[in-house]
Design a protein around this nucleic acid. Structure first.
Length: 504
RNA sequence: GGCCCCGUCGUCUAGCUUGGUCCAGGACGCCAGGUUCUCAUCCUGGUAACAGGGGUUCAAAUCCCCUCGGGGUCACCA
């Protein structure tokens, strides 16, 4: 039988990398004939926001985690937003009440709070005492007529054991006395998480629930509901959590926790996916570089670890460099341009094409600096290609290439290679200037060929190349002089060499 | 605290099912060296772990027990 899985986030905040990992596991678990459903769990109207639903959908798309059914996309089991499924919930709540699997509880929150407090002090599990459990029909009617508010609780039989199969942990069991009569709905039409979840998983014909370990204690509660309603059993897989370096839950205190933040910082989606997949899963051999497609082929649940994994940003950065090296330069160029624009280094030559945003691709167009120097898209393409293995995230492109866009400052000390005299440095720069001005056909090959030719005339090529590179970049560390000269262009290169000579 | 889960280098992990090939392999990080005009890349080498204690066994990272440690969860949130 084909599998059906679902990823069911709540739109109550920016899409978390932990959620992304769960979504990824669901995505990878389903093979071609299976189905992956996106369900938005927005039963909590107070906390759910539309912008967060959008953020979930955008993030999934960015990561490349395509799903088969979901809000906007549709499917045979919709609607896929819990806020639009109240008729279904109402039906089942009624059924649960009528069949005596659930009951109305009129206890006040204050009273319950006190009760829990007392139990906790005594070292007992805080569970509901069940005072409203056996209210007579007349009593209920009377309270209802008085307009007393109530919640709906599940009638949990004591002394039973709920067992379920977990693909990662094997068989897990819970005893029913520890849960008490838990609340399943705020009223006849407002289900709480466990109820809505159990109903939707059934209604959407879900075969496997793959979620975070934080849900493991919800599982018996959901199973009890399923049993009362005579739903088919589901297979579970509870993945370990992602931890902060101090082994605590990955929270905002740690730094970036949302997918959007990593996108903005300039991580490639394929790198984030690769990294997240390796958290708690391995192929069983030494391979670490994976594309989504490869992961989909390789992934099996039985190779998932049980222990939580610390989110190691350095490793993420390393994985990102791996994917950066593999990435298509033109795509990278489009991705890097927004950072250069944001920094104020570049602006579109054509004002109508202004739209760029960090993490997204800029239009393929020509750009210019504030002082009017042009950077055609093809030159930018070469610039990026030359820096592809010099950055760990896209955002670093600005600091690594700043000298292309800003005026540079040099002094003799910078221009000096080993113990060269000012005269020797000046001579090198003169020669370089001459070589460049004699180049008719300004191409990458031509520029490097001619420059190299001259450099080889020296016993120590550094005597020629270092002053040249330093004059062009104003930096001790940068890309090579051939590349820089070519990208800067004949005019700008000559002018920088001329400026450099002034300090000698 | 109750319940549930987990425990191999600092971190991510392989090995554990079917004890021996493991004085534990790979990767990130870090350190050293090489290539190079610089930096980065790349290459070579090094660093560092079976939580502890008992068993079982000719033999245990691998099986059993206990202890310790970590995490999750105990809402009219999801």
């Amino acid at each position: 039988m084909n599998k059906r899985v679902r990823f069911a986030p709540s739109p109550t905040g920016l899409f978390h990398v932990g959620s992304a990992r769960i979504a990824l596991a669901n995505y990878l678990f389903t093979k071609k004939e299976d189905s992956f459903v996106l369900r938005i769990e927005d039963t909590d109207q107070e906390r759910s926001e539309e912008k967060y639903e959008k953020n979930i959908i955008d993030s999934l798309k960015w990561l490349g985690l395509d799903y088969d059914e979901g809000p906007q996309k549709g499917g045979d089991y919709g609607p896929y937003r819990q806020s639009e499924r109240s008729d279904t919930y109402k039906r089942y709540i009624k059924k649960l009440l009528v069949e005596d699997h659930a009951y109305r509880c009129f206890c006040s929150q204050k009273k319950l709070e006190k009760e829990r407090e007392r139990q906790r002090k005594k070292g007992e599990a805080p569970t509901y005492s069940g005072v409203c459990r056996d209210l007579g029909e007349d009593e209920i009617k009377e309270k209802l007529e008085k307009g007393k508010s109530f919640v709906i609780r599940m009638k949990v039989k004591e002394g039973e054991v709920v067992k379920f199969k977990d693909l990662i942990r094997g068989e897990v069991s819970f005893e029913t006395e520890i849960m008490g009569d838990y609340v399943i709905a705020k009223d006849e039409k407002s289900p709480l998480y466990n109820l809505a979840c159990a109903i939707d998983d059934y209604e959407m014909n879900i075969s496997h629930v793959i979620r975070g370990e934080d849900h493991i204690s919800n599982t018996p509660k959901q199973i009890l509901i399923q049993k009362a309603l005579k739903f088919d059993p589901i297979t579970y897989a509870h993945l370990p959590l992602i931890l902060a370096p101090d082994k605590s839950k990955l929270s905002k205190r740690f730094g970036a926790v949302s997918v959007s933040e990593y996108k903005k910082e300039g991580f490639l989606p394929e790198a984030l996916v690769n990294f997240l997949a390796l958290l708690g899963w391995s192929p069983g051999d030494d391979r670490e570089f994976f594309t989504l497609t490869e992961l989909k082929k390789e992934f099996t649940m039985d190779r998932c670890k049980k222990a939580g994994a610390v989110f190691n940003k350095e490793k993420l950065e390393y994985i990102n460099t791996l994917h950066l090296k593999e990435a298509d330069p033109e795509r990278l160029t489009k991705l890097c341009i927004p950072y250069l624009v944001e920094e104020g280094y570049l602006k579109p030559a054509d004002d109508r094409k202004k739209k760029t945003s960090l993490g997204n691709e800029a239009p393929k167009a020509n750009y210019e600096t504030d002082d009017g120097r042009e950077f055609s898209f093809s030159v930018l393409n070469i610039l990026i290609k030359d820096h592809q293995d010099r950055i760990t995230t896209l955002s670093e492109i600005t600091e690594v290439t700043d000298y292309f866009f800003k005026p540079v400052n040099v002094d003799f000390k910078l221009l000096q290679w080993k113990d060269m005299s000012p005269e020797e440095v000046a001579d090198s720069i003169d020669k370089a200037k001459k070589v460049l001005s004699n180049i008719e056909n300004w191409t990458q090959d031509e520029v490097s060929e001619k420059l190299l030719e001259k450099a080889n005339e020296y016993d120590d090529r550094g005597k020629f190349l270092w002053p040249l590179r330093a004059a062009l970049t104003g930096k001790e560390a940068s890309a090579g002089p051939f590349e820089v000269a070519y990208i800067l262009g004949k005019k700008e290169s000559s002018s920088r060499l001329k400026e450099a000579k002034k300090v000698l």
